[in-house]
Amino acid sequence: MSEGKLERGERGERHDSAPGDEAASGQEFGGGVTGYVVGLLLALALTAGSFYMVSTDLVWGPAIPAALIVLAVAQMGIHLVFFLHITTGPDNTNNVLALAFGVLIVLLVVFGSMWIMDHLSHQLMPMGEMMKRMR
């Protein structure tokens, strides 16, 4: 057993990681003050990119929403890794699985609603037409 491992073990309770647990991720990549600084810089860059995207003519108009979503998803990933310390390590399996389930439900709710409501409004008669026929 290596000394480093012993050290981690001896502090106790280091076998699984709670999300956001500073102690567990302090020595790892993305832990400690450095991790927060890196996370802040990346998040700032992505935020600036998002705001720049809507203020410039550099990007083809119809592509802007897709680009914004890509930037937002990237920034959420940055937040998860550098601020919430959700990693792919074995001590994080529970947290990642819970997150994956949450993301699944969020996508189902948002895109399911948009899909269904879009179909509904396609198949509904426009209000003016309905008024005309009810006379």
Partner: peptide, 27 residues
């Protein structure tokens, strides 16, 4: 090391609290 797959007995209170709160945040 316990890997979150049920090995090694119940986790510490800090871990279960953090995990429970993580579940709350996701909901």
């Amino acid at each position: 090391e316990a890997t979150g797959r049920g090995d090694g007995g119940p986790a510490s209170k800090r871990i279960t609290t953090g995990y429970g709160f993580w579940i709350f945040l996701l909901s």
